[in-house]
Write a protein that binds this DNA or RNA. Structure first.
Length: 313
DNA sequence: AATTTCCCCAACCGCGAAGTT
DNA sequence: TAACTTCGCGGTTGGGGAAAT
């Protein structure tokens, strides 16, 4: 296919738009619409290429463009529901966020959300946890290293720490212990629950790890015959999880519910290299935690953005 | 107060898809 | 159906303001 330049390169203005240019464009479109972007600038008396005019209109001048900070619900929708499913399909995401443009969402993602996810050790592309993305220096310099019961050397040296399956079982045990202690902790302490769950990878169809069919004792025996030592490791591990993110702005609570499609906790992907697979489009990776209540969903997920209505491409 | 560095975001660029001739 | 045109998307850039030195 031949490709023509979008406009004559000579004599056309580039760069920021002036208020006069904006007004010309608005006036013209209000009178005539924007049927043909190529001829529009000439007809409107603008020394701009059609592409520039279209961009200016769609991203800035359009009357339904909502400006200003992204709301909590909008951010939540972008992070949890749309980007994890659609990936960098900014226009598709924008189509589901009334008043927001693809450019605006893209910018917001790249300047705010993406950085935050990276700091939290979450791959912004796959939404999977990645140990190699964690800011280890900040972790090590944080107070946890000095104050906590965590013994990094012991953890790193522990056999269980390099075996994803064992890790999953250990994590499962942590989860079950917590739940037994306080079944409603999700509602009582959102941040804690976020820390608890935020490293959960999305559960993909066909790659989900079945819940551990082992008792706590069996798990402990598999990991370490020294039960006390194991429990200590688990406690350290748990506190580490919590401390990791205490300096960061928490993600919306839904983020965790969203990922915790399986209550058996998995750290496997934290320690493994990141998945190079593209952003999952599998609907199974997107459903809400079945254990979350309707109230919870109502609280943190706007009904405006019904997730199950998103078409897949 | 001056300079440098960092960060944000509006705008540009290149490409592919879709439409038209 | 090939050639051409137009549109729209996603990645990237760079100007300018804010923060740091």
């Amino acid at each position: 296919m031949g490709r023509s330049p979008c406009c004559e390169k000579t004599g056309l203005k580039k760069g920021p738009w002036t208020p006069e240019e904006d007004q010309k464009l608005i006036d013209y479109i209000q009178k005539h619409g924007y049927g043909n972007w190529r001829t529009l600038p000439k007809n409107a008396g603008l020394q701009r290429c059609g592409k520039s005019c279209r961009l200016r209109w769609t991203n800035y001048l359009r009357p339904d463009v909502k400006r200003g900070r992204f709301s909590y619900e909008e951010e939540e929708t972008i992070i949890i529901q749309l980007h994890s499913v659609l990936g960098n399909k900014w226009s598709s995401i924008a189509a589901r966020l009334p008043g927001r443009t693809d450019n605006e969402i893209k910018n917001y993602w790249n300047t705010h959300i993406r950085k935050r996810l990276l700091r939290m050790g979450i791959d912004p592309v796959t939404h999977n946890p990645r140990l190699d993305l964690l800011d280890l220096s900040s972790i090590l310099s944080s107070s946890l290293y000095n104050k906590s019961q965590m013994n990094m050397a012991r953890l790193l040296g522990a056999q269980s720490f390099v075996n994803p399956e064992i890790l999953r079982l250990a994590s499962s045990l942590i989860s079950s212990q917590r739940e037994n202690q306080n079944p409603d902790f999700v509602f009582q302490d959102i941040e804690e629950s976020q820390v608890q769950n935020q490293y959960n990878p999305p559960l993909m169809q066909g790659q989900g790890i079945p819940p551990a069919p082992f008792s706590n004792n069996e798990v402990q025996l598999m990991i370490n015959p020294n039960v006390d030592q194991f429990q200590s490791n688990v406690a350290d591990f748990s506190s580490w999880q919590q401390d990791l993110t205490e300096d960061y702005v928490p993600l919306p609570a839904n983020y965790n519910n969203y990922y915790v499609s399986d209550p058996s906790f998995s750290f496997a992907s934290v320690l493994s290299t990141h998945s190079s697979s593209p952003t999952p489009l599998n609907s199974n990776s997107t459903y809400f935690n079945s254990s979350s209540t309707e109230d919870e969903r109502e609280s943190y997920s706007s009904n405006i953005y019904k997730f199950d209505q998103i078409p897949y491409f």
